[in-house]
Design a protein around this nucleic acid. Structure first.
Lengths: 354, 354
DNA sequence: ACAAAAAACTAGATCGATCCACTAAACTGG
DNA sequence: CCAGTTTAGTGGATCGATCTAGTTTTTTGT
């Protein structure tokens, strides 16, 4: 038994007794067909099981109504965004096609495959490619989750969370609990690290408290390493500080941090582990705030206080920015507000000596 | 400044002084061109920055050399497979195009978008669609990570891990440590759950120990719930009621499990959390084995003993199966062996009363 | 009631490649 | 040296849709 070949527009046209062009008009929902024939053609199409052939449409039409998304398949938050981008694109009449990057597949390669497919714009999540090259792409590019106000601003559209606001939320939350000395474990060279570090420094300056920054990174192991440095520094303050009260039983020196804001959740988990292994109670002895509100942070036994990014708002803004630029609009930057997801790793500080 | 339109084969042909058909032959690497012109055409193509237009190729050629992959974007292991499928496909001269499923995007829809693009075969990871419908697809379908020997066998090709072997590895590992009573928190209605449950029951039967199964599911919350039931059952067996605060080995009745094999890692993490929150030491009071060897399981502070699936072998087998069926080969089933990744959540049982 | 305008519909070119049938050139072998 | 075969290269149809420029029909205004 031979598989019946898939019906084409010509088949539908013949069956409905109209021209191919009219079928095209009806299928596209374009103007130029009466309600009655529209209904009839649609009926026939359904009966025949007609589905438009994407390849042909892509080839012929100047408006492919296709958005390309470059994402890193190993990043959980990217995955979440991809799903939301499908929805946001669909709502504006755009299909979405994916191209993954990974250890064996470069961003460049992923981009090229999208261009060969005829996307009208590309959304690149956490771009690693230099802005100059991205700007050279023959279709509009939207950078998602890139560093705010970074070198890409003004060259490619950018959609990201308000990193400074996120850090401020964390610090305000901790201040509200009574913390005064708050350290930061940064993200090292990772994308977004510089912005969060700066926001931290500014927020602390605004409070008139000296910043205390430890060099970390995006991974669990980075957070763990930075946490050890923090512990060492606390020990040093407690042990050698000039105003140490003798006996320092619970021994926390004035000026030693009672809370720490970490670059991201993965890094925060590493830090958490290190603190607890060292016998430091969290949140009793030290409060910890992460960033990303990842699924892992929300696991019951981790329950990390974290800054959440609004995936849906980000996805909608990215699609909006892409569609805008396709329509000839300007390069623009969209900033989405984060929120603070309270968890069990933050609490009021225990008064020294108690 | 107007963007220069992308060069086509006609442009290359004109510049090289040959016909379009010959350029096509050279670009495809087909037979019918001399070495010298081949080199010349390739040179010209490079100079012009020519890249073949995927849309046109897809439309015209009967051999699109495109594989479609349907995956669930929220599943970490799917993500890993996607990356490996790109590589495995590329090695056999196939491009790979993705279509994600998710809470708002059905498998059906994902499939259709692939078919509209002209894929030669589709690889569906963890299919939820009934076999009958998958078999009705106009291109060959390969089901990946589906239940072994399930209803799909013989209808669509299937590539999966030897689930029974995985469970046996877990149980043998635990027996080797000295465990005798081993419980199972199953995956509920999830894909693969039935196979693992059966393998567990058979392995226990072979050891002459009664099976002890708790109804769970694929998520952290499912594992947590099942774990609570297990704790309740243990409490009942020990006859001590629900005093969880001072758990551990103290009140363990003969016949109470000293180890548990959980459906997957996510579920195992939920269970781990519940056990530890209840004051039960892992692995001191209870050993836990997960399944998937996910990245989360490998985090330093989690370090879950888990059954690992060989992603690369799975990906290569899936592509091989797809290519085979495209070439007219038979439906077939490929089974890949898992391994046990030792972690810190399994240890010898503490003798009761110690 | 009739010309002008709008709406409904169609023929044929076109997108950029592949594929098929064919010709021209180069290479055999007896 | 010429028929026969192989290799190199070409023109034109074709994939299935969209788009442009028309033609026919209907509606509208006066």
């Amino acid at each position: 038994m031979t598989a019946a070949p898939r019906p084409t527009m010509a088949d539908v046209a013949a069956a409905a007794g109209v021209s191919r062009a009219l079928v095209s008009i009806v299928i596209r929902g374009a103007a130029g067909a009466s309600e009655s024939t529209r209904a009839r053609v649609l009926d026939v199409a359904r009966d025949l099981g007609y589905r438009p052939d994407t390849r042909a449409r892509l080839l012929r039409s100047s408006r492919t109504r296709l958005l390309g998304v470059v994402f890193n398949v190993t990043e959980p938050f990217h995955a979440e965004l991809v799903e939301l981008l499908y929805v946001a694109g669909g709502a504006r009449g755009y299909a979405v096609t994916l191209s993954a990057t990974g250890p064996r597949r470069s961003e460049q390669k992923a981009m090229e495959s999208l261009l060969d497919l005829g996307v009208e714009a590309a959304i690149v999540i956490s771009p690693a490619t230099p802005a100059a090259r991205l700007a050279g792409t023959p279709v509009p590019v939207v950078a998602m989750l890139d560093a705010p106000g970074g070198p890409r601003a003004g060259v490619v559209s950018s959609v990201h969370t308000d990193e400074a606001a996120g850090i401020r939320l964390a610090i305000r939350h901790l201040r509200g609990l009574g913390h005064r000395h708050i350290a930061h474990l940064d993200g090292g060279e990772a994308v977004g690290s510089a912005a969060r570090r700066l926001a931290y420094a500014q927020a602390m300056a605004a409070e008139g408290v000296p910043p205390l920054i430890f060099h970390g990174g995006p991974l669990e192991s980075d957070g763990s390493r930075a946490a050890r440095e923090l512990l060492a520094a606390m020990g040093a303050r407690a042990g050698t500080g000039h105003d140490t009260r003798e006996g320092t039983a619970k021994g926390r020196a004035a000026g030693a941090p009672t809370a720490v804001v970490v670059f991201n959740d993965r890094s925060a988990l590493g830090a958490l582990d290190t603190f607890r292994t060292a016998g430091l109670d969290v949140p009793g002895g030290l409060s910890v705030v992460g960033y990303d509100n990842s699924r892992m942070a929300r696991l019951e036994h981790i329950n990390l206080t974290s800054i959440g990014q609004d995936g849906q708002a980000l996805a909608e803004a990215a699609v909006a920015a892409a569609v805008d630029r396709i329509a000839g609009g300007p390069v623009r930057e969209a900033v989405v507000s984060p929120w603070l997801e309270p968890g069990g790793t933050t609490a009021a500080p225990t008064p020294p000596g108690s």
